[in-house]
Write a protein that binds this DNA or RNA. Structure first.
Lengths: 88, 88
DNA sequence: TGCTATTATAGCACATGTGCTATAATTATT
DNA sequence: AATAATTATAGCACATGTGCTATAATAGCA
C-alpha cells in the first residue's frame, strides 16, 4: 500500500504565478466586457474552469490560455503583460 | 465497459498554439545560451519534459512555463512575443 | 570515422487539468 | 427587501501533464 508522496517526485505548482495570472485574466476579461459566462460560452471552455482559473485554484494549460486569448481577442504579450512574481 | 469518447466531452488541444510555443521556446533557449539539459537542471524540470515541450508533444501548464521564464531570465511578454496562429 | 554532447522517444506511475452537473454564495438591479 | 445575474464550490470521471529511468537518434567535433 503506497502512501502519498513516498517517493521524491516534486511537482511544481507556481502559486505566485498562478495568482498573478488569475488577477490578470479577470482584469482583461472585464476590460473586454465579458462575463465569465460569456467567456465560457464563446470559448467553448466550461464556466467552472473559468472560475477556477480566476480564483487560482488550478494551473491551466497553454491550450486553455491560448483559447482564452483568442476569444478575448487579445495578443499574448497583452495577456501576459504582468510581472512574474519571484518564486517564494 | 466504456469505450473511449462515448460521451460528448470535448477537450481542447491547441495544436497550432502549442507548435508556435515550441518554436518560440527553442528560439529563446538558444538565444539565452542554454542546452535542454542545462535548462532542465537549473529549472528543476525534467529533461524529458523540456524535450516534449519543444517537440510539441504536450500541452504544458502555466506553472511549467513560468518556471522556464524565470530560469531563462526572460519576461513573460518576451517569452510570449509571437503570433498566436488561428485555430484551424 | 569514431566519440561526445545533445536532443528525442518510450513506458510507467501518480497528480491534476478539464468537462459536466448541481448548488451555494455573492453582487447588481429594481 | 426581493429578484436576478454573476461568480464560486463541489464531486465525479476521464484525459493528460509530469517525473523518472532508460534508450535511441541526431548533431558536432576531434
Amino acid at each position: 500500500m503506497k502512501t502519498q508522496q513516498e517517493n521524491d517526485r516534486k511537482l511544481i505548482f507556481d502559486n505566485e504565478g498562478i495568482k498573478a495570472f488569475a488577477i490578470q485574466l479577470k482584469k482583461i476579461r472585464e476590460r473586454e466586457g465579458f462575463t465569465q459566462s460569456q467567456l465560457a460560452f464563446e470559448s467553448g471552455l466550461s464556466l467552472s474552469q473559468i472560475a477556477r482559473i480566476e480564483t487560482a485554484r488550478i494551473n491551466p494549460t497553454l491550450s486553455t490560455v491560448f483559447t482564452l486569448a483568442r476569444t478575448l481577442n487579445v495578443t499574448l504579450p497583452d495577456l501576459f503583460n504582468f510581472e512574474l512574481p519571484p518564486k517564494v
